[in-house]
């Protein structure tokens, strides 16, 4: 029997595991991967203490920190369902086994939101990708489009400026909404053309992507591109806890100490309704949740 099972091993889950281990809680981590979205980020320049570190490197540091402690890590293992059983314990069903714990932290993060336009499924990995860090280098010297106008889109643009020939940014909002420092860098590149108040309506090609159709204030337009990078935000991976209260975006609502609406089930990071989705915020939330669990378990004794 574990005091605490943490689901997810991104910045939130790993930080929670470190705090829980240091508090002497018998802790297990179950996750489908290590590092979460942090491992898929490009350059990270806003994690205090590191003026510059790549996402995969930061994720390695997180993992190293977790492995220093005697924490049982089940990876890769997918959690299917989390329910509170009648005895007050929490039951976690996975694709391999069933576990019980006195408390749980849901730190399952979020996944890429899809465009839901014609051609998206067909051309996935055939020019269309959700991971600029992974697949960006394959578009050397080619024309590409980035869909989105927030920080992820700016991150993708900054990576692609060094690789691609021409970069179209298709942004649904009236202006780019990422960090000012990133926007300035992106806009100052003569490789970049920004289409604001614009939406993608279709992705076309043969075996691979050849073009996208967009709708913009001036009408419709076809852009010849061989790469499409979809960076339009995230959907929380909150489906595994059916009964917890969620907001309209599907994010798990948190009360004091990061507890959800179900006693003993806590959450942290991008899966929750925390205001900002940042690596450092997720890490901080993970620590809060672990300390919340520690207090909760102390009250139970």
């Amino acid at each position: 029997m574990h005091d605490l099972i943490i689901i997810g091993a991104g910045p939130a889950g790993i930080t929670a595991s470190v705090y829980a281990a240091r508090k002497g809680l018998k802790t297990m981590v179950i996750s489908k991967d290590i590092g979460g979205q942090a491992a898929l980020s490009g350059d990270v320049e806003n994690y205090t203490g590191y003026q510059f570190i790549s996402g995969p490197e930061l994720a390695d540091k997180f993992e190293e920190h977790m492995r220093r402690f005697n924490i049982e890590v089940k990876e890769p293992e997918a959690v299917l369902d989390v329910v509170k059983s009648s005895g007050g314990l929490i039951e976690i069903k996975t694709d391999k086994d069933t576990y019980k714990a006195r408390a749980v932290i849901i730190a399952t993060g979020a996944r890429w939101r899809q465009l839901n336009v014609a051609g998206e499924k067909e051309y996935k990995n055939k020019g269309l990708t959700y991971c600029a860090t992974c697949d960006g280098p394959l578009f050397s010297g080619k024309d590409v489009a980035i869909i989105g106008g927030g920080n992820s889109a700016m991150d993708a643009a900054l990576q692609l400026i060094n690789i691609a020939a021409k970069i179209y940014i298709i942004n649904i909002a009236p202006k780019l909404t990422g960090d000012e420092i990133m926007i300035k860098k992106v806009e100052s590149s003569d490789k970049v053309a920004v289409f604001n108040e614009s939406a993608v309506t279709k992705i076309t090609g043969d075996t691979f992507v050849r073009a996208i159709k967009i709708k913009h204030p001036g009408g419709e337009k076809t852009l010849q591109v061989s790469g499409v990078f979809v960076e339009i935000g995230l959907i929380p991976n909150s489906e595994i806890v059916n009964n917890a209260e969620k907001n309209s975006r599907g994010e798990i609502k948190l009360g004091n100490d990061n507890q959800t609406s179900i006693e003993g089930i806590f959450a942290a990071g991008d899966v929750s309704d925390v205001a900002e989705k940042q690596i450092i915020v997720a890490a901080g939330e993970g620590s809060k949740a672990a300390l919340g669990v520690f207090k909760y378990l102390a009250r139970q004794k």
Binding site: G42, C134, D135
Partner: peptide
């Protein structure tokens, strides 16, 4: 692989 891709590593 590419150097930056975590699954490649």
């Amino acid at each position: 692989s590419t150097p930056s891709c975590p699954y490649c590593i």
